[in-house]
Amino acid sequence: MNLQLEHIDKTLKSKVRLGIMAVLTVNESLDFKSLRTLLNLTDGNLVTHTRTLENAGYIVSSKQFVGRIPNTAYRATEAGREAFRRHLLALEQLIEAATKGSGR
């Protein structure tokens, strides 16, 4: 079982960050407001988590101005997509191993 645990991504262990990656993999890009409503988060919370993901190189942001109001759009990077895919795969394998182990 330890074999799969190394694929569990530390950055994606947080449910919020996993959620952000999930919606960004199925959307080309999303702006701050859409992300906030989709994930039901506060501004500060979302900022913290997106910053962590940006630092890990999983997402990139670009700031645009709509009139005078800044609007940040987020996009998943190729590395981010790959990390998300591997993390999900590892979780699946974990479940598989666990269900087999307990004879369910």
């Binding site: 449910k15 996993l18 959620g19 999930a22 919606v23 993999t25 199925v26 959307n27 999303l30 859409s34 989709l38 994930l39 999900l88 979780l91 699946e92 974990l94 479940i95 666990a98 269900t99």
Partner: peptide, 20 residues
């Protein structure tokens, strides 16, 4: 633990659907 992972995966799936 596995139940928790399962529920997380379900949530992630609905989130992906709802957002796209």
């Amino acid at each position: 633990e596995t139940d928790e992972i399962c529920s997380t995966l379900t949530e992630i799936r609905t989130l992906m659907n709802r957002s796209s």
